[in-house]
Design a protein around this nucleic acid. Structure first.
Lengths: 230, 230
DNA sequence: CCGCCACTAGTGCATATTCACTAGTGCGCA
DNA sequence: TGCGCACTAGTGAATATGCACTAGTGGCGG
């Protein structure tokens, strides 16, 4: 849709606190309605300031370079890619930025991948605005913010154990999984990848093994649950 | 982009003037963060009043009976079921309520099913708060609100054409599809439905036919795209 | 330089799915 | 009362998957 909301910019600035400058936030969310609403909410929150809004990974990168925010608050699923995958690019562009990922539903392995990619935290949309504000402030101060139930996975993963299901998928396997998620057959996947039928079949087979799935259908279900598919 | 005017006879509208009485809105949305934020936004809007919030189909029905709202603004996907399927129950409970469905992504057939179920409209989350406010006011006045690109499907469907893919699925076929969407095999589906293997197989087969899918995987993909799966 | 790993390609076989049929039963509607 | 439809159950054959292997090639790091 159009325009950068005047709504965000014209909200009155809270008087700056004596001991801290406002946290500059870049909001990346593809659903305008939700973006505007969260924008409104965060602008009401003292000490937070929305300095930009983006609706895609591409424009998020551009905006991040332009505005150099303290915190990027980014939806996990975006039209042109995975928010988690974009963390590395953001960090490369703006080294000290804290990336807080916003997820509709999350399991431990999503959180683990966020942590591994250098993200500052993950918060669920089920969590309430006050917790969101709190999380933004915490990550701005350098804390890692993951909800209690996901912490075990995050720590285990950072310690090197393989608790996250899909992290050890190879690029080809990821491609195969993505095509599976679009409903393609093994033959179509092989063609798409430009390899022999048997090769594509092997990639798919290894995806099933690594995900612990007993059918392609289950693999897609698991992958979707674990956030491996946009 | 909206509009489709007054096909409904608004005989029982208590106040003809929109200024005299606020539109009472029940918000049904499972993500607390989004619900709170939208709540905030709509409360700012003159003439709209949030009289309740629910996070599930079950509590939506309870709240609707208790608060008797003018408009139910309901997310399409809820933890305990499909928002579209809940429209009929809502109308049975509160006959004159207008149900406006909120969808993240939508195709024509979703809109068609909303219209067919007696819903007052469908608005995409990509659409912006001002359009949401506008849509709520319009449905409160008896208009049907569907965005332009979905209108063709809606009208076609109301005229009897079979543009909606999944609407003619039988209950058993729907169950089979739901289980497919959870990654179950044909055998597991048959067991779950309490029928013979061949019967379950037939149900699945007919789902594939009706959805035009060439594999179970593709069927699930199509179903998800068309909004037939939560 | 050697080993590890991803990618590639293949074989063989058991099982599952796809597809095209027939057919009995029960329910609701004209 | 009869017709249509959903649900049930089955057969049989072609195709696709799931599973367990072997193996060659190329890149990258110890």
């Amino acid at each position: 849709m159009i325009v950068q909301s005047a709504t965000c910019k014209d909200a009155q600035m809270p008087s700056p606190s004596p001991h801290s400058r406002p946290v500059r936030v870049l909001l990346v969310e593809d659903h305008d309605m939700v973006a505007e609403a969260i924008c409104l909410a965060l602008e009401r929150s003292p000490g937070l300031r929305i300095v930009g809004r983006a609706a895609s990974v591409a424009s998020a990168l551009a905006d991040a370079r332009r505005t150099e925010p303290d915190v990027v608050l980014m939806d996990r699923r975006l039209p042109d890619g995975d928010g988690v995958a974009a963390i590395a690019d953001l960090l490369a562009l703006v080294p000290n930025v804290r990336v807080l990922v916003l997820a509709g539903e999350g399991s431990g392995s999503v959180a683990a991948r966020v942590a591994e990619a250098g993200g500052a935290g993950l918060i669920l949309k089920a969590r309430g605005l006050s917790e969101l504000e709190d999380a933004v402030r915490r990550v701005a101060q350098g804390e890692l913010v993951f909800s209690q139930d996901l912490l075990g996975d995050v720590l285990g993963r950072l310690a090197g154990r393989t608790s996250g299901l899909g992290a050890n998928l190879t690029p080809r396997e990821r491609e195969a999984l993505a095509l599976l998620g679009q409903g393609r057959t093994t033959a179509e996947i092989s063609e798409q990848l430009g390899v022999a039928l048997n090769t594509g079949r092997n990639h798919v087979q290894r995806v099933l093994e690594k995900l612990g799935a007993r059918s392609q259908l289950e693999a897609v279900t698991i992958a979707r649950r674990e956030g491996l598919l946009a």
